[in-house]
Design a protein around this nucleic acid. Structure first.
Length: 138
DNA sequence: GCCAACGTTGGC
DNA sequence: GCCAACGTTGGC
């Protein structure tokens, strides 16, 4: 069973271009308990949208989880975890936040419902719709 | 255990 | 630069 997710990054801190260039990258720095719960639920093979927050405000690519949650080396203390992500492919056409908001079918999407959550689930239906909007196959 | 104050995130 | 949402902290 493959699950789908959406992860946010400020491109100033870590961008899709860097993800592509580096290949496999640890997804670190999550300091929110709900987001951490989502990280811990990820399994190798799960896929996630890579979203640029603040600058761009659009989904720019698809990544795949290659290593399940392990202790976040960037955390000095606490129970924080990270996963390793691998770039799969960019969207042919980035899907903007404005475009997502304009479609009422996305009202329940975690990205909209919990705007400050940096890691959230995406339903299979939403995944398919967003891939179509982005011009790629899931 | 409640709640006000404060900090951070992220959209606008 | 502002503000809303939300998490955290600290006084009581």
């Amino acid at each position: 069973m493959v699950n789908y997710w959406l992860v946010k990054s400020e491109p100033d801190a870590f961008s899709w271009d860097e993800q592509v260039k580096n290949g496999v990258e640890p997804w670190t720095g999550v300091r929110n308990h709900l987001a951490k719960k989502h990280l811990a639920a990820m399994r190798p093979g799960d896929r996630a949208f890579f979203y640029h927050s603040n600058i761009g405000k659009e989904i720019v690519g698809i990544v795949e989880v290659v290593r399940e949650a392990y202790p976040d080396p960037s955390a000095e203390s606490g129970p924080w975890v990270c996963v390793d992500m691998k770039a799969v492919k960019p969207l042919k056409k980035p899907v903007t936040l404005a475009a997502i908001k304009a479609d009422p079918r996305f009202a329940e999407l975690a990205l909209l419902k919990y705007s400050r959550l940096s890691v959230g689930p995406v339903s299979a239906e939403h995944w398919k719709m967003l891939c179509e909007m982005g011009g790629v196959d899931g």
